[in-house]
Design a protein around this nucleic acid. Structure first.
Lengths: 195, 195
DNA sequence: GTCTATACCCCGATAGAC
DNA sequence: GTCTATCGGGGTATAGAC
């Protein structure tokens, strides 16, 4: 675990560590003791900042990951004028990042999502908000490029879904191919609405 | 938990129960004691049939889910002559099944996959084999419909990925929409290769 | 093959001194 | 805000009678 810059506040360090560990190990696989140790904090501090316990920590970690991923998404999407090219570039960026991490840093919240769906409503809601947030960023990009409202909304749904699935598959196969192919297919799909 | 038909062998009961629980709760969230209880077996029986412990049980459960899902996929794909329509029908079938389960029975192995990727090689390999198996079924369907080898292979990758991501998203939003939209977009993508 | 008992460990959570 | 000690429970896994 990378030591975070020491001038970071304790709460922030706990949050980042929890978010990273839950990305890699999921909700059930991540212990509060492990979070406190790798964050360089004590167990008491964790419960001081997150009195709601593990669930509250997970909600905050998901929200933190939401913002981080949204920032990366925005940067990727604004790099190209053509949204089809922008989405393909985004897929390539995700593939590179995944490979650089040794195939462990995929979607920051999908493991937690799958473990808690239908079983921990507060976490589930935070996950839904994140997905909706990312969708909206994509839909906005499409709308600004001139796509009609309905097409933009539907395309945004599929774009996020497909990247999600491709990232999972890329992790399992330890290969960039699923993400790269997904990027090209999504560009093709977007292009098919242009004609 | 539905009581399985009692004439089923103990090993088979354990396997089905483990597969179902890991589908809903993931690998880390599913305990061997819970599996044994809900399967109507004793803890000793579980270790009798799966001396490798929890990891070996998970590998067998993933392989079991692989076969079950492959059967459902084959049935869906062979229901329509046009592969574009067949994939859309498959998405609708998944959506209906997911809804009927109260949004808990999504992809049977993705939770386990995300929790164990890079951390439990044997389970990871079983997951990769399942994904490859499903891909091959789709690729075969496309090839039989006259698609060139390369296109069939790439399309199969994206089709499985997209269904995977759409199922996750449908669970989180408790809505059939992501799967239905994915089905239509995949049909459109397949159609775009028809010239 | 089935069952019970148990060893050993780590989990989430709390209490209370500082 | 930080830290230590600890509680109660559940986790995986094993031993050995039947």
């Amino acid at each position: 675990m990378a030591e975070d810059t020491p001038q970071l506040g304790t709460r922030e360090r706990i949050l980042r560590t929890a978010s990273l560990l839950m990305q890699r190990q999921g909700y059930e696989g991540t212990g509060i003791k492990q979070v406190s140790q790798e964050a360089g904090a004590t167990l008491g501090s964790v419960y001081h900042f997150f009195p709601g316990g593990k669930q509250a920590l997970a909600v905050a970690a998901v929200q933190h990951a939401d913002q981080e991923f949204a920032d990366m998404l925005s940067a990727s999407l604004s790099g190209e004028a053509d949204p089809a090219k922008a989405v393909a570039a985004c897929a390539r960026a995700l593939a590179g990042h995944l490979r650089d991490s040794g195939w462990v840093d995929g979607c920051p919240i999908s493991a937690t999502a799958l473990e808690t769906v239908g079983r921990a409503p507060e976490i589930e809601q935070a996950v839904a908000q994140a997905f909706q947030h990312w969708r909206d960023l994509v839909a906005d990009t499409l709308r600004e490029a001139g796509f009609p409202e309905d097409d933009a909304r539907d395309l945004a749904i599929t774009i996020i879904n497909t990247l999600e699935g491709a990232e999972l598959t890329a992790q399992v196969f330890k290969s960039e191919t699923p993400l790269l192919v997904a990027g090209e297919h999504l560009a093709r799909l977007i292009g098919s609405y242009r004609g």
